[in-house]
């Protein structure tokens, strides 16, 4: 295993570099697709599972002091395999055990953490859906599209950046309330 190359790959991923994302897809997608097709899945299932594995790897690459104990290929394979087995169990079409065992890493801990994060993600997404307009667009413009306050003020028709900023805080307070209302329920 070429440690330097693997490290570049993970650093690229943490930066959300498009070339890196594409490379990981090109190097791994077909293996995962055939794994899932062989085990009573569809091409759509393969796309979903692969995307989730990418997110798991992305979360891991961003966590401080992180090191991968195997190469990216093995890691993705292990995560996909685990995720798919779990999904099969949920759907109860657990007809055939996956037989083509390659070197598989224990990934349970990572997946548990991922599940927790995914849960948080959905709570935030739900809260975002519920705050309504113009709050949703305003917060998305600032936090997701990372636009400047001045630009947001012009686009949304506020007379100046300070007014837009005040509105943003009001929206933020509402979002926070909605988030915690659900977050505390979920625990």
């Amino acid at each position: 295993m070429n440690i330097a190359a693997e490290k570049t790959l993970l650093e690229g991923l943490a930066r959300e570099d498009k070339g890196t994302i594409e490379k990981i897809y090109r190097d791994n997608y077909n293996i995962i697709q055939s794994l899932i097709l062989k085990n009573s899945g569809t091409t759509d299932d393969a796309a979903d599972i692969f995307q989730e594995a990418m997110i798991v790897l992305f979360e891991k690459s961003k966590s401080p002091g992180f090191e991968l104990s195997c190469n990216v290929k093995t890691y993705i394979y292990s995560v996909c395999r685990r995720l798919w087995l779990k999904k099969l169990q949920q759907m109860q079409r657990f007809s055939k055990q996956t037989d083509d065992m390659e070197q598989v890493m224990p990934v349970e801990e990572d997946l548990e953490m991922h599940e927790k994060r995914q849960n948080d993600f959905f709570i935030m997404e739900n809260a975002m859906m519920k705050i309504g307009e113009p709050c949703k667009s305003l917060l998305e413009a600032y936090y997701i599209q990372k636009k400047q306050m001045q630009q947001i003020a012009t686009e949304f028709g506020y007379t100046n950046a300070d007014n837009a900023k005040t509105q943003k805080y009001k929206c933020l307070v509402r979002l926070k309330k909605l988030f915690f209302a659900q977050y505390k329920n979920g625990l």
């Binding site: 897809y25 995307q51 997110i55 948080d120 993600f121 935030m124 936090y143």
Partner: peptide, 20 residues
């Protein structure tokens, strides 16, 4: 922190979708 994680994941998903 939760909001940051949320925006990171959302932007990353968007990137993934474009690649796919």
């Amino acid at each position: 922190n939760e909001l940051n994680k949320y925006t990171d994941t959302r932007n990353f998903k968007h990137n993934l979708n474009e690649t796919v």
